[in-house]
Write a protein that binds this DNA or RNA. Structure first.
Lengths: 143, 143
DNA sequence: GGTCGATCGCTAACCAGTTAACGTTCAGCG
DNA sequence: CGCTGAACGTTAACTGGTTAGCGATCGACC
């Protein structure tokens, strides 16, 4: 089992777990905060736009937005100019989550990188960015 | 959106996507190779042992092993000494996948880190290990 | 002004993963 | 020797995610 792939995926798993319990403290599941973040930045976007912004498929946004509607955090309404579009709008409850969620994520980021020196942190970011680019390149050429 | 968490999860996503298509070339889904890897190392282990080795819940192993049985890569048989135990055994097809899958993963690891110098690679690994430890610590103390 | 293709949201059927609850089987202890 | 509690696999119900395919709507073109 190659060491980098293994370490990276194990790290991802624990990071996800930590983020999950943090989000549950606010009644959210992991990933829902990303969707809300798009609306916090600009309300009334369509599922397709959100999917593109979050790098997720449109059906994933559709399902998740259904749960967020049930939770009373957003509402769904058709665009009256173009009737095949649907626009998602934050409710008061959804908007109220912005500050606590963002603070929560900053807290996690801080705790999780607190053992790194500033230099290590920068090298980690740039190395990870290189890996990201190489992976995207590998992905778009092989199929 | 904190930059490290974001970059790490985005990197994980593309890495998963690459691994997924690579595994599909051998008729596998992502994660199934990890389960098989445990059996390649030592055949005839129980779902609980495998779950612990792969850091996954037991039900996850149960479901996945069902699909691997359907695919003809493993068989499931109760232990005759202790009848509540179930042991998973590789079939010939399951054993035959070891070499190609391991080579596939090594190839991905190589391609994905090819833009890194040796020094960068080592720093990335050690930094990631630190993050991993801090995250585990954060996880076990907060709830 | 009608048709035809593109766009968009959505549903269905998968996959991996989780926790909670259930039924069996075993082992230790009275 | 029986009973009680622990260990184990399994099922059910949820989450996030995927691709394939359906239906409705819009826009452009003839």
């Amino acid at each position: 089992m190659p060491e980098f792939l293994d370490l990276h995926s194990r790290t991802n798993k624990v990071l996800r777990a930590v983020a999950e319990v943090a989000m549950q403290r606010h009644g959210l599941h992991l990933g829902q905060d990303h969707l809300l973040a798009v609306l916090w930045k600009e309300d009334g976007r369509t599922p397709g736009e959100i999917a593109a912004a979050v790098n997720v498929s449109t059906p994933a946004v559709v399902k998740m937005s259904g749960r967020l509607v049930d939770a009373g955090l957003i509402t769904r309404r058709r665009d009256d100019r173009d009737n095949r579009l649907v626009r998602l709008w934050l409710t008061g409850a959804g908007r109220a989550l912005q500050a606590p969620i963002e603070s929560e994520r900053r807290h996690i980021e801080k705790k999780v990188t607190e053992d790194l020196t500033q230099e290590e942190r920068e090298l980690l970011m740039s190395a990870l960015a290189k890996v990201h680019r190489s992976t995207v390149a590998l992905m778009t050429e092989s199929p």
